[in-house]
């Protein structure tokens, strides 16, 4: 009785698709996610039914990010590429230098208070330009909160889509970036060249 085969992968994939569809119909799919390969590595994209809630770099550890989403948003998470097809396509266009902004609904559920205000301002910094942390602090009505702006950028749950990479130091040096400084450099160079 040791020869019973494991159910085959294609069968399980079909059942998974069917489950995703049924869960969506029943309103039980709280979080959909997929990954997408980009020039700066594999990104994890996650969305609630309100919009994109998380973009994560590979270096953050995608399993860890999913665990965090389970704790903070909902454990009803399924791999559902379809709900994120539009963002995946727009990211392709962005990295090809053919898109200046993202046109998808955003869910800011992971950010509150001042950090949420900072993200709201970052969203309107134009493509190809930068602002200093101090300028962002002024723009959000709290000129002394330069360090807090830095923290808000460093904890941005929606990097690239909410362009925290467009915030640099007053002296023009890069400052920090969750995805690594080389990634920040790559994004700024991409936008400068387009």
């Amino acid at each position: 009785m040791t020869n019973i085969e494991a159910p085959n992968t294609a069968d399980l994939d079909r059942l998974h698709d069917r489950l995703v569809h049924a869960a969506d119909e029943a309103g039980l799919l709280d979080l959909a996610y997929r990954t997408v390969d980009t020039p700066i590595g594999r990104l994890l994209l996650a969305a609630t039914d309100r919009g994109v809630v998380r973009v994560a770099f590979e270096t953050e550890g995608h399993d860890r990010v999913l665990g965090d989403l389970a704790a903070r948003v909902s454990p009803r998470i399924l791999n559902t590429p379809k709900r994120l097809d539009t963002l995946a396509r727009e990211l392709d266009e962005y990295f090809a230098g053919q898109r200046l902004g993202f046109d998808v609904p955003i869910d800011f559920a992971l950010s509150r208070g001042f950090r949420r205000d900072v993200l709201g301002h970052l969203a309107v910094i134009p493509y190809g330009t930068t602002e200093s942390y101090a300028q962002v602090a002024v723009a959000t009505g709290n000129p002394r909160a330069v360090r807090a702006v830095g923290t808000a950028c460093a904890t941005n749950p929606l990097p690239i889509v909410i362009p925290c990479h467009r915030v640099v130091r007053t002296d023009g040096s890069l400052g920090g970036y969750l995805g690594g400084l080389h990634v920040k450099r790559t994004l700024l160079d991409l936008e400068a060249a387009a």
């Binding site: 494991a6 399980l12 454990p75 998470i77």
Partner: peptide, 16 residues
């Protein structure tokens, strides 16, 4: 909690 996706992946074959 473990994301449900991982529950499906880990236990899907057994349940089937």
């Amino acid at each position: 909690m473990t994301p449900f996706e991982l529950i499906v992946r880990e236990h899907g074959p057994t349940v089937l």
